[in-house]
Design a protein around this nucleic acid. Structure first.
Lengths: 218, 218
DNA sequence: CGGGGACTTGATGGTTGTCAAGAAATGTGG
DNA sequence: CCACATTTCTTGACAACCATCAAGTCCCCG
């Protein structure tokens, strides 16, 4: 199941490992490469001078980070121990073409654009509970697709991603549990009981963006 | 001053004109080209089945739209009468390299990514007045850079872009005027009296994103 | 001059941020 | 393995902010 197994031995020199909470690259530095996640999860953060932090994205296996030719606008940090494949900036082809055939000549950049669109869509949802519902569906779809999911990030991370406070995220989770849409086995372990109702909360279209309901009923 | 003058006669066949409120391309259709704005302004809209509308971006001269190889996720509509240069999808070079030298091999996509980052940053601001302040700075920077600016979009458009209501946008504008940061000569004609104070509201870093204060004091 | 659309403004209620405390989970040393 | 310390998460009370509902104003255009 480990995706590193898919790689030829001569390509292993491009593999990088980071421990939990390590910085993969730092905001303000120069960019000499981009990465593809083999396994583990990262967060992309932007720090403002006033101390606020905005999480631009979470990056799961098969997704990309660091596509900034001009330099690092954001920091990348390991949420869990993480294994990355390091690419040269002028090579925009993916190592793991998981989705089947590529999506044009620049699949890496197009993945990045798609992720940005998804973030904007999430922030466009008017209420906290809708954003949390959409977030859970997004994570489910982007990891295994099953109804039992592990959240590698803290409530504060989720809050900084959805532009809410940790408290509101927590309240929304509790409210979803109270309505019977999810079960909180542990703070970071969530079962999606009614993904179709979550999808309705998140907006039908957004739910489609996350791959629809079919995969979640598995 | 008209940018069409910069084009060689043999390239005029790729110019397209649209009148105000015309649709440039529609959500759900196929994508066979992307565009560069010569003059005029467009809005990129995403329509949800429940009737909500999210404006993903406003596109000013020198900026790009329609970079979606897989098909149209969004609609593009002319805010004013608009002149576009039509590009093939496999040619990602810009016709107008306004910023001087290009920014790598894929300047068009990198412009699109930069615009997406800016939208996320705007939505990350916690209060309505901060978003409106940042929005005004952004428009000023992306048009002429001077303190006197014309807003080609309606309050409702701004609201759907900043994820607020038209009413809150209007109230925020009035509040900025009350504080002496701007003057509302007409609903769509705004003078920035204190761009540095607007920048402080919007957050220093965001202000830098919009080109800093120097250009606004002109 | 009259009509309609866009904008502004007021009153009210719902949602979220803030402040504060408590509960649960995690880690550490005995 | 347990007790304790620390961090993370949850929950409550309150205040601030924004959406909603409802008028009212301004401006453009016929």
């Amino acid at each position: 199941m480990t995706r590193g197994d898919l790689l030829f031995p001569e390509l292993r020199c491009n593999l990088r490992e980071y421990a939990r909470d390590q910085t993969i690259y730092a905001q303000g530095g120069g960019a000499d490469c981009w990465y593809e996640v083999i396994h583990g999860t990262a967060r992309i953060c932007h720090y403002y001078p006033d101390g606020r932090r905005q999480i631009m994205a979470f990056v799961f296996p098969g997704e990309v980070l660091g596509l900034e030719r001009a330099g690092r606008h954001n920091s990348a940090e390991a949420l869990t121990s993480i294994q990355l494949y390091r690419h040269a900036l002028d090579d925009l082809s993916l190592r793991l073409d998981i989705d089947g055939r590529g999506e044009g000549d620049h699949p890496a950049i197009e993945k990045a654009l798609k992720a940005a669109r998804e973030s904007i869509a999430l922030l466009g949802l008017p209420t906290a509970i809708e954003r949390v519902a959409a977030f859970l569906l997004s994570v489910a779809h982007r990891t295994h697709g099953g109804p039992l999911l592990y959240l590698p990030m803290s409530r504060a991370d989720i809050a900084d991603y959805l532009c809410l406070t940790m408290h509101t995220v927590s309240r929304s989770m509790s409210e979803l549990a109270r309505r019977g849409l999810i079960v909180l086995d542990a703070p970071q372990r969530v079962r999606l009981l009614a993904p179709e109702k979550l999808a309705h909360l998140a907006g039908v279209e957004l739910a489609n963006m996350f791959g629809g309901e079919a995969q979640l009923v598995a």
